[in-house]
Design a protein around this nucleic acid. Structure first.
Length: 278
DNA sequence: ATACAGGCTCGCC
DNA sequence: GGCGAGCCTGTA
């Protein structure tokens, strides 16, 4: 296999892959293997270079190596919480995931810990995806929406999806029938895109914001999960009485600004890494 | 063991 | 139009 080097300054591969935005990369030796779309890829970071079998353009695009982290970080509010998270997360990038794969994975993520989301993602890939070898290592692409429509709720439940199986199947049908045209939705405004996503079975505000951020490059989108909610309440509203979801959401949009999604990811990753659950 | 997870939906008020 | 309960299942 032919390997090449790609310059990747201001990038931390491991942080990026372990920050809860993507769930299928496996650590092998000093590097990682996984698929980008249908392409099997191996990656190893050495300083500010990536050693990979993948095409440079594919890798650069997937990992958003064109994002200017310096500029993004400059746009963050300069409070203490944010500063700490920012220095902790140096090199962490929001990646550009395939839309269907991202949407399907986050439909499966509700009420699940990261370890379990990884397990579900893997079960779906192994059972319904296509085999892609890298060396002697088996990888599996994420199954297309059409492929899942040929499945059944029962088979999906065998992948440990529980009640999420019905939602995933229903959304797969809409996408497969082109009633939900994920690619065409790229042209929509944030507000319209969010509305379209939220109309899909199994998609609410949190999942919609994740998909907007991780697959549509809407860097303003600010998903609020239990971790982030805890951080916001403890650090920004220590004495608030009633603080409902919509008020909190409104605050994040105004306060964190045009790269709020990055700010969210940094706050989230920092919180998870420094305060593992007892 | 048993509470609880990176939520969504529906029924209730 | 806000609030609470139920939903599946593995993990800590």
């Amino acid at each position: 296999m032919k390997l090449a080097e790609i310059a990747a300054p201001d990038f931390d591969l491991e942080k990026t892959l372990n920050s809860g935005q993507v769930f299928h990369w496996e650590k092998i030796g000093a590097g990682f293997v996984g698929t980008i779309g249908d392409v099997p890829v191996q990656l190893e970071q050495r300083g500010d270079r990536l050693i990979t079998n993948g095409r440079a353009s594919l890798i650069r695009n997937y990992f958003s190596l064109d994002h200017s982290l310096a500029e993004i970080c400059r746009s963050f509010p300069s409070d203490e919480v944010m500063k700490t998270a920012r220095s902790f997360c140096r090199g962490l990038r929001i990646i550009r995931q395939p839309k269907w794969e991202c949407l399907a994975t986050f439909i499966c993520s509700s009420m699940k810990q990261v370890a379990h989301i990884r397990q579900i993602s893997r079960a779906l890939r192994v059972r319904f995806g296509e085999l892609r070898k890298i060396g002697n290592h088996d990888l599996h692409s994420f199954p297309s929406a059409r492929r899942l429509t040929e499945s059944s709720e029962k088979k999906l439940r065998e992948c440990a999806l529980g009640y999420r199986a019905k939602n995933l199947l229903a959304t797969a049908r809409l996408v497969s029938a082109n009633e939900a045209d994920l690619e065409a939705w790229s042209a929509l405004s944030d507000v319209d895109l969010r509305a379209k996503l939220c109309a899909l079975p199994g998609v609410g505000a949190k999942v919609a914001n994740c998909v907007m951020l991780f697959a549509y490059e809407r860097l303003r989108a600010f998903p609020i999960d239990v971790w982030i909610e805890r951080v916001l309440k403890e650090r920004y509203f220590p004495r608030a009485r009633k603080l409902n979801a919509s008020r909190l959401q409104r605050f994040t949009q105004e306060y964190f600004g045009e790269h709020g999604g990055y700010a969210q990811q940094y706050l989230f990753h920092h919180a998870r890494m420094t305060k593992p659950r007892a």
